[in-house]
Amino acid sequence: MSALTLRARQRLQLAGLLGPVTVFLGIFFLTPLVIMLIYSFLAPGLYGGVVWEFYPHNFGRILGFADPAFEYFDPVYFQIFLNSLRIALTTVVITLLVCYPAAFQIARLPERWKTFCLFLITLPFFASLIVRLFIWVLILKQTGFINQTLMSLGLISEPLDLIYTEGAILLGLVYIFIPFMFLPVYASVEKIDWTLVRASQDLGANGIQTFWRVILPLTLPGILGGSILVFIPSLGNFVVPAVLGGAKVLMLGNLIEQQFLAARNWPFGAALAMLVMAAVLVLLFLYVRFESKSGDDAPLLN
């Protein structure tokens, strides 16, 4: 028989299962992150590249303590940061407003229709994101579908400014991230025990009271999960503003891309990216705190 104890064998199995993932993530995820973190504290070289000295002023340029000899503090960066934050939050709110009622409707359907609706919601994943966004360009542009239709109907005489606006970016983000909101929200709505709703009404609560006191708290985990899943990629999103925002509306993702590719200021780009990550981490921390408070602790009695 094997000389290994059961315990040792279990450990070996665990290492075998987790090992490859750990190595993969370590090399391809953690290493670039560490490089970025280090770069964000280095000085930019005059012709691109970095100068190996400690230089906190990359963050200073954004937060207000720039190195006056070299660069200026420019509130525009913080402005873009806030702007992106606002767009990401608005995206979360809109996707939630769309998905929450829809989840209740779909959860009430017979089993066959439920499956079909879930399939429809995941359907966009089958086509390339870029292609889908360019179709929105065709729809929204000056000579696009909407403007042409409205003009031929005589409702407008001049084409409307639909594309290259914040509205277009919001539309694109909402369009892309609806499935990310829908699936967690739907999962929590599906799970609702409707006898709890009955119990609430039985105890004198009307529909609105029952919603605020029972239904909303019970679906809150799904709402928060979906919000995180939409908020994080929206905040740093760069494809949607690049395609639908043009040069007019800048989000953090585009700003970072510019620093790396156009301005060739890697340290500043890295600093911007680190700030986005910090914002996301704070949020995730709050979320985990909430989850562990409301999650199942071990029953004390049984």
């Binding site: 006898t195 709890l196 119990a199 609430s200 009404q201 039985d202 105890l203 004198g204 609560a205």
Partner: peptide
């Protein structure tokens, strides 16, 4: 409607609100 009837129910599976303490359940 149910919430206006002077009747209360003990449900088959108890139907306690899982997100509320015992006191909040009873005082609902």
């Amino acid at each position: 409607p149910p919430h206006k009837r002077p009747v209360n129910t003990v449900f088959q599976n108890y139907a306690l609100f899982p997100h509320m303490s015992v006191g909040d359940n009873v005082g609902y």
